[in-house]
Simulated scan of single mutants.
Amino acid sequence: MTDGLNKVILMGNLGADPELRYTGNGTPVLQLRMATNESFVDKNKEPKERTEWHNIVLWGSRAEALAKVLTKGDGVLIEGGLRTSSYEKDGIRRYRTEVIARDLRFTGRRSMAQPPPGLEDDSDATQPGAELPAAATARLGNGKSGARGRPPEVPVLDELPY
């Protein structure tokens, strides 16, 4: 018998901060609410937008790590499979469909009107030699990112050796 294919790929924004919980045996479970938007033109030639909400679940050590960095508004790409469960509430059988995520990729923030924490400084840190805020410097570290507190020097295109 041939196996089926249960694969979902979604790209959207988190509608709320993630919720990290643990099962009875201590396994981490991360629950996310994700919104995907669709723009279309209706039969009256009016532009419309529709938002779909998705329940996303991540399991294991990756769930713990992602709980520390994901926040409301983050853009993400999720790859996983659908799982539907049922339960009874007030004598009525209800169903819940979730995406069990196997992979999560960052796609950026929904808008840069709200900069990431630590980058609220008004100075233009994109200019070579400009000082970065202390929080950003701590994230960059001292590796190949240039002198401490400065972004790496970017060569002018005319100076490239090839």
Score class of each variant (00 low, 15 high):
99 V>D: 03
18 P>S: 04
139 R>I: 13
40 F>T: 12
133 P>K: 09
116 P>S: 08
106 F>V: 09
111 S>R: 04
79 E>F: 07
113 A>G: 14
81 G>F: 03
124 D>S: 08
51 T>Y: 02
103 D>K: 11
70 L>K: 01
42 D>A: 09
123 S>V: 12
12 G>W: 05
107 T>I: 07
69 V>C: 13
90 D>F: 04
63 A>K: 08
93 R>D: 02
10 L>H: 08
46 E>R: 09
89 K>H: 12
105 R>W: 03
77 L>A: 12
7 K>P: 06
68 K>Y: 02
20 L>R: 07
15 G>W: 07
48 K>H: 08
25 N>S: 12
38 E>F: 04
54 H>V: 07
64 E>P: 11
95 Y>P: 00
61 S>I: 03
9 I>G: 06
14 L>R: 08
138 A>C: 08
141 G>V: 00
62 R>V: 12
139 R>S: 10
21 R>S: 15
60 G>H: 04
54 H>I: 05
84 T>A: 13
129 G>D: 07
15 G>P: 09
38 E>W: 04
49 E>Q: 15
9 I>E: 10
46 E>F: 02
17 D>L: 03
23 T>G: 00
16 A>M: 08
90 D>M: 01
136 A>W: 07
147 A>W: 06
13 N>D: 10
87 Y>V: 12
58 L>G: 02
75 G>M: 02
113 A>V: 14
28 P>G: 02
40 F>C: 09
133 P>C: 10
95 Y>K: 01
7 K>Y: 07
36 T>V: 13
135 A>D: 13
116 P>E: 11
38 E>G: 08
117 P>N: 00
82 L>C: 04
42 D>L: 09
20 L>W: 08
43 K>T: 09
88 E>R: 07
101 A>D: 05
17 D>S: 01
114 Q>L: 02
36 T>H: 05
105 R>K: 13
82 L>F: 10
78 I>V: 14
24 G>E: 04
28 P>C: 01
49 E>N: 13
25 N>P: 01
64 E>S: 14
47 P>E: 10
55 N>Q: 15
78 I>P: 00
78 I>R: 05
58 L>D: 04
89 K>I: 07
55 N>T: 14
55 N>A: 15
72 K>P: 00
46 E>T: 11
54 H>D: 07
44 N>R: 06
15 G>R: 05
64 E>N: 11
8 V>P: 04
32 L>D: 01
66 L>T: 02
90 D>A: 11
19 E>A: 11
29 V>E: 05
88 E>N: 02
7 K>I: 12
97 T>H: 08
121 D>G: 03
28 P>V: 11
117 P>F: 01
94 R>W: 08
90 D>G: 01
67 A>T: 13
136 A>Y: 05
127 Q>R: 12
63 A>W: 07
25 N>F: 03
51 T>K: 06
30 L>T: 14
52 E>Y: 03
109 R>S: 04
117 P>I: 01
58 L>Q: 01
20 L>G: 10
34 M>C: 06
39 S>K: 11
82 L>R: 07
84 T>M: 09
68 K>T: 14
123 S>E: 15
123 S>R: 15
126 T>H: 10
83 R>M: 10
72 K>E: 01
71 T>W: 06
87 Y>R: 15
92 I>M: 12
68 K>G: 03
92 I>H: 14
20 L>H: 09
132 L>N: 09
43 K>G: 00
74 D>A: 09
107 T>W: 00
129 G>H: 04
139 R>W: 06
48 K>E: 13
104 L>H: 03
73 G>D: 10
